[in-house]
Simulated assay, not measured.
Amino acid sequence: MSVLRVLPALLSAAGGEWDNGVCSPTSDVCFYGETPAAGLISGNDLLTLIGASAAGTKHNSNVTWLRVAAGGQKLYIAQKTILYGVSIGTLRALGLLSLTGQVVSIGGKTFRVRTLCGSISNPWSGGAWAADPSHQYGCEWNKIMYRLYGGGGVSGEGIPYGELAKYSAAELGLLGDETPGSRTLLVANNTNNYGLFRGTWGPMGHSYGTIIGAPSARGYRPVLQLIE
């Protein structure tokens, strides 16, 4: 059962956006609600800022940002992907598939632009699809997205789906391959040119390779990590 509490270490001059959250009683993940594009940055403006406009096809520019605290970090996570048909090589070259990401200034605040993280180990040796695979247990994607997806039930590692929010697969842009950007490219500690993708009919889907599903399904979902 979710509990309401405030994490003092996360309170700052940023004000009301981070004053209260719905927090997991069994992890360090808290959900603080939504910020509209007009209150932060649009998808198209962000892509221009980080030099990624040509990495694929832009969509969902009027993106809503989900405010999540996890691992001692304040994150603004795009509710849906803002780019599809992505070039893995281009995003890597721009530093967007690493924990260091790109550091930018938006509205007078400093952010690290990256994406969510998959497994901290080399995630897989092939491109087959799987749902909620055990080698992804403990990763940032699972910790956050499983708790925001209101699909009901419990994951293999014991995370209650929808513990903090009840977004549908459609609201999170996680439908089938016919939906542009339905698979999200993640940060992964792999040493080849493969990409790690999560999504397809909810956040549980996992695929790994150079060519994953329909090209239009491969999407970039940015995370803005607030630097204070």
Rank of each mutant, 00 (worst) to 15 (best):
V3N: 14
L7G: 08
L7R: 15
L10C: 12
N20Y: 12
E34T: 15
T35I: 09
I41E: 00
S42M: 02
D45A: 14
T48D: 13
L49V: 14
G51S: 07
A52P: 02
H59I: 15
V63Y: 03
G71P: 04
Q73C: 14
K74Q: 11
I77F: 10
A78S: 10
G85I: 08
G89I: 14
G89Q: 15
G89C: 08
T90G: 13
R92N: 11
L99D: 08
T100E: 07
S105W: 00
G108N: 10
K109C: 06
R112T: 11
T115R: 14
L116N: 12
N122G: 10
P123M: 14
W129R: 14
A131D: 03
S134P: 00
Y137H: 05
Y137W: 02
W141T: 02
K143G: 00
I144P: 01
M145D: 01
M145H: 04
G151C: 12
G156V: 06
E157F: 04
Y161H: 05
E163H: 06
A165L: 03
A165W: 01
D177Q: 08
E178F: 04
P180Y: 04
S182A: 10
V187G: 01
N189K: 13
N192D: 05
L196C: 10
T200N: 11
T200W: 03
W201R: 15
S207T: 14
S207Y: 11
G213L: 12
S216W: 07
S216A: 15
G219S: 12
P222Y: 09
L226Q: 07
